[in-house]
């Protein structure tokens, strides 16, 4: 469970978040929507402790995220996968190597790495491209590589910061579909997006933000 308790964040006089309190249950799929500057990315960055809150508490299960010492932040990030609008893929490594990084960091054996990376690439339909370099891939393929990197370590939570922002409609839906598959396996997904079609076409919780505040928190409609 992710819990924000009256969290505020200031950036040099600008208040990015204002006393946010919200709970996200394990296994939930949550859309974060709102105009640019609403505070969506700030929420995601706070969860992976890329930044610290100005006030308030953030809990991931029983861990007080904001209290984790700087030297131990990597333990948290090994439990949380992250994907970005700009993919953040290493240009001098192949698809396979980009995904394998995460497992190398965890100190897995080469044999296990090969199997697990192939499994993750298979989930995002990228096995046939695993020896290609990023320059040889389309935007959709780059984002799917990034997605494979996020899921390969089996995270409890995946944070997606406008992952479809640079993709065409077909690829955007493909990415969402993969995230839905991963969510079905029990992973919590928090996705910041501007794509209103996703919200209309799916039945997930939607947290709307504006000027650093939550203006609406719409739970999924129960199926009849």
């Amino acid at each position: 469970m992710i819990r924000f308790i009256t969290v505020s964040k200031h950036y040099l006089g600008h208040q990015a978040l204002k006393d946010i309190s919200v709970d996200i249950e394990n296994g939930e799929f949550v859309f974060l929507i709102g105009p640019s500057g609403a505070g969506k990315t700030t929420i995601l960055r706070l969860i992976i402790r890329d930044i610290l809150p100005s006030s308030g508490s953030i809990l991931l299960d029983d861990i007080e995220v904001h209290r984790i010492p700087h030297k131990k932040v990597h333990h948290l990030r090994r439990r949380v996968g992250m994907i970005f609008q700009d993919f953040k893929i290493l240009q001098d490594r192949t698809v396979f190597e980009n995904v394998a990084i995460v497992l190398e960091i965890l100190g897995r054996k080469p044999k296990d790495i090969e199997k697990e990376v192939k499994d993750a690439l298979s989930l995002v339909d990228m096995v046939d491209k695993m020896h290609k370099f990023p320059a040889q891939l389309s935007a959709g393929e780059l984002q799917r590589t990034s997605l494979a990197r996020a899921i390969v370590m089996g995270p409890k939570v995946i944070l997606a910061d406008e992952p479809t922002g640079n993709l065409d409609s077909e690829n955007a839906w493909k990415v969402l579909s993969i995230l839905q598959e991963v969510n079905k396996l029990g992973t919590t997904i928090i996705m910041a997006t501007h794509n209103m079609d996703f919200i209309k076409e799916s039945n997930y919780r939607v947290i709307s933000m504006k000027d650093g505040s939550i203006i609406n928190d719409e739970k999924p409609k129960t199926k009849k």
């Binding site: 992976i48 990597h74 990030r77 992250m82 960091i105 990197r149």
Partner: peptide, 15 residues
């Protein structure tokens, strides 16, 4: 950029 990615995917400072 490479170091930034390493940090985000959970690399320790020593790594």
């Amino acid at each position: 950029e490479e170091i930034e990615i390493f940090r985000l995917v959970g690399a320790s400072r020593w790594y």
